[in-house]
Design a protein around this nucleic acid. Sequence first.
RNA 1: GCCCGGAUGGCGGAAUUGGUAGACGCGCUGGUCUCAAACACCAGUGUCUUCAUUGGCAUGCCGGUUCGACUCCGGCUCCGGGUACCA
Length: 952
Amino acid sequence: MEYNFKEIEQKWRQFWEDNQTFKTDINHNKPKYYVLDMFPYPSGAGLHVGHPLGYIASDIIARYKRLKGFNVLHPMGFDSFGLPAEQYAIQTGQHPAITTEENINTYIRQLKQIGFSYDWSREVRTSEPNYYKWTQWIFMQLFNHYYDKNANKALKISSLIEFFAESGNKTVNAVCDEDTAIFTAEEWNLMGEEQQQKVLLKYRLTFPDESVVNWCPGLGTVLANDEVKDGVSERGGFPVEQKKMKQWAMRITAYADRLIDGLNEVDWSDALKEQQRNWIGRSTGASVRFSVFDARSSGQNSEDLPQTSKNEHRTSIEVFTTRVDTIYGVSFMVIAPELDSVPSLTTSEQKEAVDEYIKWVASRTELDRMSEVKKVSGVFTGSYVINPFNNEKIPIYLADYVLAGYGTGAVMGVPSGDQRDWNFAKHFNLPIVPILDAQKDMDEQADNTKEGKYINSGMINGLTYKEATKVLTDFLEEKGIGKGKIQYRLRNAVFSRQRYWGEPVPVYFKGDLPYLIEESELPLTLPVIDKYLPTETGEPPLGRAEGWKYQGEYEYELSTMPGWAGSSWYWYRYMDAHNENEIASPEAINYWKAVDLYIGGSEHATGHLLYSRFWNKFLKDLGLVPEEEFAKKLINQGMIQGRSNFVYRLKSSEGQGKNPIFISYGLKDKYEVTDLHVDVNIVSNEILDIEAFRNWQPDYKNAEFILEETGSNQGKYICGVEIEKMSKRWYNVVNPDTLVDKVGADTLRLYEMFLGPLEQAKPWNTNGIDGSFRFIKKTWRLFYDDLGNFKVKDETPNPAELKVLHACIKKVEEDLERYSFNTVVSTLMICVNELGALKCSKKAILQELVILMSPYTPHISEELWTLLGNKAGTISYAQFPKFNPVYLVEANFEYPISINGKVRANISFPTDALPSDIEAGVLANEIVQKWLEGKAPKKVIVVPKRIVNVVR
RNA sequence: GCCCGGAUGGCGGAAUUGGUAGACGCGCUGGUCUCAAACACCAGUGUCUUCAUUGGCAUGCCGGUUCGACUCCGGCUCCGGGUACCA
C-alpha cells in the first residue's frame, strides 16, 4: 500500500470538519493557552507560500500545547476592511463587501487545505456589522473618557464635568490640548452648552483635531505616519503631502509613558521593542519661553511692527530643547513655516519674502523635502526674541528644517552645538559663539559633545554639563519662563479616512459640534452609495449616501475609521465571537485573559502592535480586560521573499515571426542576450523543464535552446536566479495549492518549517522539498513493507529502540519550548532514519513517534494513529510522550582539571570507556600530564565526575 | 547620520550555558536495482597534503581574554531591517 496523501488528507480534513475537532470551550479544569496569528487582509491574489509560514508555526504550538494538556484557543479571522477592495470597487462598481466575501472564501479554502487546527466557529470579520458594532462602541468609550494623570488612567468624562462645575479646571491634572485655557467653576457654569462641549473636546481621548496631516491625493485620504514610507503611501506608492486638516484624532500620547514602560514586561524581540521605543521617542529636556522683542517699548520705528500685532501679537515663543545648557550660544530662533503665529511675527518689510518662502515650502512634497535635506533654506521674519538669560536680541527665522508637528514647532538655534544650526548660521552669516572650553574649530563644524567647562555663558561659566543643566532648569522654573519637560515624538493618531470601505464613525454634528449617536442605535451600518468616489464638492464617498442623516436631521460624520481600528481589539472578540451584548463576556475574557503567543510580521511594529497596546490599556482602564499588555510573547516571522528564475534570449532571435533561441546560464556571457523572467514552477534546481517551457507561452512553442556543454549540467538548460519580491509579474509566485497538490499539505508544513529559523527573512526555494516528502514516505515504510503489508508488531521494544525514541522526545520538547521549529524537523528525520536502520516496527515506539510528529504532519499522523489501533482523531489530549532519561545511557562524563587551584580544563570520556570513576580520574591525570609536558605546572588535580553531557 | 540584526561548505542551515565546528536537508559523486531511465536504497562529500594513514588550515577581517572562542571583549568590512532635519 502506497502512501496516498491526497486520500489521507482529504479524509482527515473531512473528519475534523464533521466532528468539529478543534472547537474550543471554556474549561476550568485545564490551564488555558491562547495562540494567535495576525489575521490577514483577504487580498484578491489568495495565499502565496509566504503567508502560511507563521500560521504553520502557531498551529504547531497549538497542537503541541493540546498534547501537553492545555485548553488551547487558536482562532482565525479576517481584517476585511481595506483599500484594495475599495479600489476595485471604484474600477468595477462591484460592492467591496462582495469582493471581500469572495476573497475570504478563497482564503478559508486554502487555510483548511493546509490543515490548520483553527476553531472556525469563532471566526471574525472586521467588516461585518456585528463586529464593527463593537469597534464603534469602543470609539464611543474613547469619546466619553479623558486621561487623568493623577489616577494615571482613563476616567469618565462625566466625572470631569462634575469637577469643572465645582472647581473649574485649574487643579485638574489631565492630558489635554496645549492651548486649553484655565477657567473657574463659575466661568464653566456660565458657559453655554456649545462652549462647554468645545472645552470638553480638548480632553476627550478621541476628538476632531485641526492639525498637519499626511494627505495623499492619489488615494484621496489622509494617512497615519506609519502608513507613509519614504514620502509615499505604503499602499499604492502615491506621493504624500503635508496639509492642515480637521480630522478625528486619538490621544495615544496620553499613554506614551505606559506604552514605553509596558515593553519591559513583554517577551518580544529587542529589535521590535526598540523600534517602538524610538517611535514613541521620549526625550528629556526643558521648555524655555522667549519673549518677543517689543519694538514699541524700545522706542523703535513703529512701522517695523508686525502688522497684525495691534491686538493679538504673540508675546512669547516657547521652544523645547534637550540641551538647555547651550542657551548662551543661541544666536537665532527658527520656527516652522506652517505655524499660525507666522503672520503676526512678520514685519511689513519682510512680508513679501516670507510669503514667497511659505509658498515655496507648501509647493514641495514630502519626497522633495526629504531628498534635499542637506540644502539650507529659510527666511528672516523681521522680528526678534529676547534671550531671558543674557537679554540679547535674537532674530526669528522661518525654515522648513523645523517641523510644525514636533514640540512647539520652534527651535532655538545654537550653531556651536548643533550641526543643522551651524549650517544655518553659516548660510545666513549669523554669529557662532563657542560655549565650552573644549570647542575650538567652530569654522569647520559644530561640536555636540558635552565635555569641558562653559565659557561665554553668564551664570554657568566654569560649570560642567550636569551642574549647568540643573542651575539653568532651576532658574527657568523660579522665573516661571520654563521648566524641565519630557517631549515625545509620538503624535496623536489620525483616526479619519476619507474612504468608503471602513467603519462609519458613530457621530453626528449639531453645527460644528460632534455628538455620539445613542448606544442602542449601534451598529451604524455603511449606507449604500452609487459610486465609490468623493462627491463633486470634495466630500468623502459617504457624502453620496442619500438621506443618510441622524434622526433625519443631523449630518453624520462622513469619513470612516482607519484600517487599524478593527484590528486593535480583535483578539477579545475571538473569546466570545457571537456575543450581541458585549465585546465579549467577562467570563470569557477573564478565562482567556491575554494572548500567550502572538505570531506575525514585524512590519506591524509601529502600527497595529502599537495601536493595539494603546486600546488594550484603555480597555483595561475601563475595567473590561484584566491585562495591561495583550500579547505576552510575540514572534515575528521573517518575510518570504520571491526567488525569480531567468532565461536568456538571444537578441538576434527577437522580433516577430522569428524562432526564439535561448542560451543556458553558463554560456550567456558569450552572446548578446535579453534577461527574461520565467515561471519558477517549471524550473527545478535551476534546470528548465524545456517541454513545459514550450507550452508555457505560445510564442515559445518552437523555441530552441543552447544547452550547457560541460560539467554536471551538460545537456541541460540552466536558469539564472535573483531574489525579488514575490509578485505575479515576475512569475515567481509559488502557490501553496500547487504544492499541496504535488506533495501534500504535511510535506509543505514540514518543509516551510525546515527552511530555517522562523524569524529570519529568506527567499522561497522549492528545491529541497523532496527531502521532506521523502521523510514522510520513510515514515510510512515503518508501517508497511515493500509488498504493502502492515508490519507493525506489538512487541516489547529493546533498549536501542527506546534510546532512539527518548533522545527524540527530549530534543523535540526542548526545541518546541524555545520555538526552534526547524531543528525539530531534523530531529524527527534522524529518529525515523534510525528506527528504519534498526528495522523497528514496534507499536510502543511508533505510536509515540506519531504523536511527536503530529504537530507538524497532522494528516498522516492521524492516519497512522488509527492504523496503530488507537481511536480515530484523538491525538489530542495530554498524550505528548514522556521523556524517560533511563535510556540515555551513552553519556560523556566530564572531568574538570584544576591547575594550581583553578579549574583549567575539562576532559570528557564516553561512559563505555570508563570502568570506574577512580580509573577515569587516573587516566585523565595521565593524559593531562602528557598534554602539559614542557609547561611545567606545579600541581595538577583531576576532580572526577561532574556533568553528564548527553550525546546521541 | 542614528538604532537594531546578521556574516559558518556548492546551497538552506545546526552547534541550547565558552567545550568533538559543519547536525539535518538539498545538490553533487560512486554503487545497488533496471534493457535503460525515473523512483527507491546504500556509501562518500569543508579545504589543502597523501595511494592511504596521518597531518596542516578552516565559522567576514584585525587584535585581545581563556587550557579551550562560531560563541565573550575591542577595532574594522560588508549585507539586511527600522528611522530620520525630532531640536
